[in-house]
Structure formats: structure tokens, C-alpha cells
């Protein structure tokens, strides 16, 4: 496989659940809908492990559009740096009653 350009570390793995379409985050043992549960890769080896997991999960038609997202840690929880991913992790900024921000009261 050709070298993939990766965002700067640390990173988390974000995807959409195939059946639900909902945004999901790779954890230590699967996927969570709660962005705070995301496994944070601090080094290249951990990032590569997330990529390998993404490829397997995509192949088994469990998720689509899996990508690594660069984060910073706030109070120990990963928060995407880029506004697009930050909105994706929380829900529409205009509808605090919808999305993860509502489901998990983030």
C-alpha cells in the first residue's frame, strides 16, 4: 500500500457506522459513539495500528469513511483540532439538542 499522508500526532480514528451512518470513534476494543472514549494514538506505531483496524473494519462492511483525525487532549479527552472534525464529533453547532453533544452531554 502506498504511503498514506497522516495528520500530525496525536490522532484518533473516526468513521461512519455503515448501517446507522452515525459517527463512531475507534476505542481500545471496538467502536464507540462517544468521542471521549476514542483511543488516542500518540506515536506512529499506534497510528498505524488504528489504520490497520480501519482497513479491517471497512472490509467487513462495519464502517465507511474511516480517517485519522488530529486531536489535542483537554481534561484527558481527545478534542479534534480542526473545526470540521470538532463539529463532526459534537453535532451541529446550531442544534445543541442533536448529535453527540446532546447524547453524551459534552
Amino acid at each position: 500500500m502506498a504511503a498514506v499522508k497522516r495528520p500530525p500526532l496525536p490522532v484518533i480514528l473516526v468513521a461512519n457506522d455503515l448501517l446507522e451512518g452515525d459517527v463512531v470513534f475507534a476505542t481500545a476494543d471496538g467502536w464507540s459513539r462517544d468521542p471521549r472514549q476514542a483511543k488516542v494514538a500518540q506515536d506512529d506505531a499506534a497510528a498505524q495500528a488504528l489504520e490497520a483496524f480501519a482497513a479491517r473494519e471497512f472490509l467487513h462492511a462495519r464502517v465507511v469513511g474511516a480517517t485519522l483525525v488530529d486531536v489535542e487532549l483537554r481534561d484527558g479527552a481527545p478534542v479534534p483540532r480542526h473545526i470540521r472534525e470538532a463539529i463532526r464529533a459534537l453535532g451541529p453547532s446550531t442544534r445543541p439538542d442533536l448529535g453527540k453533544q446532546a447524547d453524551f452531554q459534552i
Binding site: N16, E20, G21, D22, V23, V64, G65, R84, I87, R88, G91, P92, G99
Partner: peptide, 8 residues
């Protein structure tokens, strides 16, 4: 059917 930021 599109896949958008939060959902289909």
C-alpha cells in the same frame, strides 16, 4: 442518499 458529516 448522501453520507454527510454526522449521518446519511
Amino acid at each position: 442518499l448522501y453520507l454527510q458529516l454526522h449521518s446519511y
